[in-house]
Design a protein around this nucleic acid. Structure first.
Lengths: 169, 169
DNA sequence: TCATCCCGGACCGACATGGTCCTGTTTCCG
DNA sequence: CGGAAACAGGACCATGTCGGTCCGGGATGA
């Protein structure tokens, strides 16, 4: 599914939210504003700070602050900050001794161009293009259709039907 | 990490291998040629057949055959066949009731352009560009540097140092 | 000096993935 | 006509990673 971790999704949300508050903001504040559990926000912020995407201020009255503007942050950077380097497979670069299939893997390094293309694409898109007014101040009122819902079958049904006519093209 | 499943990697290997054998080939043969365990090869082939990428012939003397040429198979199709539809996050399209964070997720659907870009990229690249002679007939002779080697630390060291100067840019 | 609040870890449960196996069905060969 | 070969389609289980929680330490402001 090519899916990236939920943490990365959170990171984008947090960063966007952070840009809306101009000043230093605390984790609980961000957690409340985004609806993400506080410890998780803290974790995301931590990773973000480690990558230099946000600046942290320790001590009382401390908090986090956006290091740069959203337009200067490509999604690739966020992904790299949370999930590590971007690569589709484990068989990339010089990761030695990982490929147990073949000492000369038939497509050794063949994913590289794909990886590069993905990286290119991800670098092009910056966070400000993911901001756009959807509802700048969320929390409309109550909760029309909350989450507890029914966790999907969870079996192996891959919901192949959804999405953009890709499997059948 | 944006990583796709290992099965997908196997699928590409199997498809490429399949293209080298012109005729109908059995799973065990492919397994032997690629070094991938047979049951896994069978599983991959099964998924590939379900997506129409390979044609199957039942009964004795049966086997699998490439449905089209490698150049007609974009990696996106392989990924879709194995991993399901391509999308970076769970919050895509009209997957209703999945977002527990917010009934109006701050960046609701904001990943869509990213997803589209990725899909575009993945559709551009076809399998024949991943073939290229590396060693058309593998198994050189003995085993200069076999695999049993040392399975990497396996701890959390994410090998952040490797790869294309991305985390630091 | 004290209280506040972030930083840096370790830690644990849940889930999806990777991999194996079994049974049934279809086709070819003897 | 009967047996063998090979695919089809499940279920099943182990493992690794991810998501989430917690605790102690240190810096800052009152």
């Amino acid at each position: 599914m090519l899916r990236l971790s939920k943490l990365t999704d959170y990171a984008v949300v947090v960063l966007v939210q952070l840009s809306h508050q101009g000043e230093v903001t605390t984790s609980p504040t961000l957690a409340q504003a985004t609806g993400i559990p506080e410890p998780t926000v803290a974790k995301v912020l931590k990773a973000l700070a480690a990558s230099g995407l946000v600046a942290s201020q320790r001590g009382a009255r401390g908090g986090y602050r956006l290091a740069t503007s959203l337009s200067a942050i490509p999604v690739a950077k966020v992904i790299a900050a949370i999930d590590g380097p971007i690569s589709l497979t484990a068989c990339v670069d010089g990761v030695t001794g990982g490929c147990e299939a073949q000492q000369c893997c038939p497509i050794r390094g063949r994913w590289d161009p794909v990886n590069d293309a993905i990286r290119e694409t991800l670098t092009r898109i910056t966070l400000d293009s993911m901001d756009v007014a959807c509802c700048s101040t969320q929390m409309p009122s109550s909760s029309p259709s909350l989450s507890p819902s029914s966790s999907p079958p969870s079996s192996r049904s891959p919901s192949l039907a959804v999405s953009t006519s890709f499997a059948a093209e």
